[in-house]
Each structure stands twice: as structure tokens, then as C-alpha cells.
């Protein structure tokens, strides 16, 4: 590890945070395009949010702990390690299934296998396009796991990344991007890189 690398997330300077926001923004642009193509619809994206927060607060980011959502979790390996998640709000789910399959969803509790496959695939496509942009800009190799799905309370879903990162420290850096389609359908992309991977990203961008 070089002398300039950070060992504490809170010691990132403004320049480094801006560099991370910028790559998040470019990745998210690609992911938004992928989603828009999939839905044949216009998709707007938010300004990327970069938060350094307590591990425990990760569960608070998605509209209240009991907000019903579907989370698609993928883990990252090789040069960049960490977690990437797509989180879909209830309305997003029903509009997507209506658009793609012509069916209604009555409740998050009884999603069909087909519904679950569709959401996993959307999560897979959005996170892959996001990470492809990150890999292209940094020259780093990023391997992504197969997607895993859970439909439940937002807080319970987010307890999974919280517990993974809680093992290594009490602070985490989270990049969040919100995508909003027509009819106000909302999804969130959340990426939590490990600190060594942050150093690798910053180094490749010349932002050590």
C-alpha cells in the first residue's frame, strides 16, 4: 500500500470525494440508459449521493425501515471488493411487471418465479453497466456475483450489507443513485466498496 493511501474512510479529502462522485455519475448514466432501453421509457437520475455513515445508518437510507422493497444483492471481487445492490420500490415493481409481462402484482409476498427472475435480471443489467463504466475508467478488473433477491422491509434487507461492513469497522462509504421513470417509479443503486478497493480506485484515477 502506498504512503498516500487512506486507512480511514473519514480521511478522504474533497478532491477524492469528487472523483468518486464523478465515476458514480458516469456509471449511473450508463445504468439509467440500460433501464430506459429495457422499459422503453424515459428514466431520470438524481445527482449521485456519496455518504460516509455509520454502518448502522445504512438501514435508514431507503424511506423508512418498514418500507416494502425488493433488494437485489451482488458481491464484487478481484480488484474491487464490496457490495452492490439494486433496490426497487413497490410501484417500480408493479409498473415493470405490467410493462414487460403484461401482468399485475398483488403483493410483494407472493412474487412468482418469473417476477423474481425479471427483477434479478434488471438488477444484473443495471449493476453490470454501472461497473463496466467503472472498470473502463479505472482499468481495474471487477468480478460480479450472480444476483440474489429478497422482498421485504427495507431495513431488514439493508441489515445484510450493514453486517458485512460491520465486521471491518464502524464507518462505511456509500454511493447512492436514484432512478425515476415516468409515473414516478423509483429504484436505487447502492455501492459499498471496501476501503482497500477505494484506494485502488483513487490510485487509478490519480486521486491518491
Amino acid at each position: 500500500m502506498s504512503a498516500n493511501s487512506i486507512n480511514n474512510i473519514e480521511s478522504l479529502n474533497e478532491f477524492q470525494l469528487d472523483a468518486l462522485r464523478e465515476i458514480g455519475n458516469i456509471g449511473a448514466g450508463n445504468a439509467a440508459t440500460a433501464l430506459a432501453t429495457l422499459l422503453s421509457d424515459r428514466v431520470n437520475m438524481s445527482v449521485p449521493v456519496l455518504n460516509i455513515m455509520n454502518v448502522e445508518d445504512v438501514t435508514k437510507v431507503l424511506g423508512g425501515p418498514e418500507n416494502p422493497v425488493v433488494g437485489i444483492l451482488m458481491t464484487l471481487s478481484e480488484d474491487v471488493k464490496g457490495v452492490i445492490m439494486l433496490v426497487f420500490e413497490e410501484k417500480f415493481l408493479s409498473v415493470v411487471i405490467k410493462t414487460l409481462l403484461g401482468q399485475e402484482i398483488d403483493s410483494l409476498n407472493n412474487l412468482s418465479e418469473m417476477d423474481r427472475s425479471v427483477f434479478m435480471e434488471i438488477g444484473n443489467i443495471m449493476s453490470s453497466t454501472y461497473l463496466n463504466a467503472l472498470a473502463a475508467m479505472t482499468g481495474l478488473s471487477i468480478q460480479i456475483s450472480t444476483p440474489d433477491i429478497c422482498a421485504d422491509m427495507a431495513g431488514a434487507i439493508m441489515s445484510v450489507p450493514a453486517s458485512i461492513f460491520g465486521m471491518t469497522g464502524d464507518k462505511v462509504l456509500m454511493l447512492q443513485e436514484d432512478f425515476i421513470g415516468e409515473e414516478h417509479i423509483t429504484s436505487h443503486l447502492i455501492m459499498l466498496p471496501e476501503i482497500d478497493s477505494l484506494n485502488a480506485i483513487l490510485k487509478s484515477l490519480g486521486a491518491e
Binding site: V55, E56, T59, P65, E66, D152, M153, A154, G155, A156, I157, M158, S159, V160, A162, S163, G166
Partner: peptide
């Protein structure tokens, strides 16, 4: 009661913790 937190109560108080996933 938040995550990684605890609280004590008595009388007619109610303690609530939201959305336990893998947490106990």
C-alpha cells in the same frame, strides 16, 4: 431502539425495534 443499541423501560412504556433482518 436502533441497530447496535439498547433501551430500558418501565410503567406503560413500549420499546420498539424496526426491521430486524439478520440482526437479533
Amino acid at each position: 431502539v436502533g441497530i447496535s443499541d439498547m433501551k430500558i423501560a418501565s410503567g406503560d412504556d413500549i420499546l420498539i425495534t424496526y426491521a430486524l433482518g439478520s440482526c437479533v
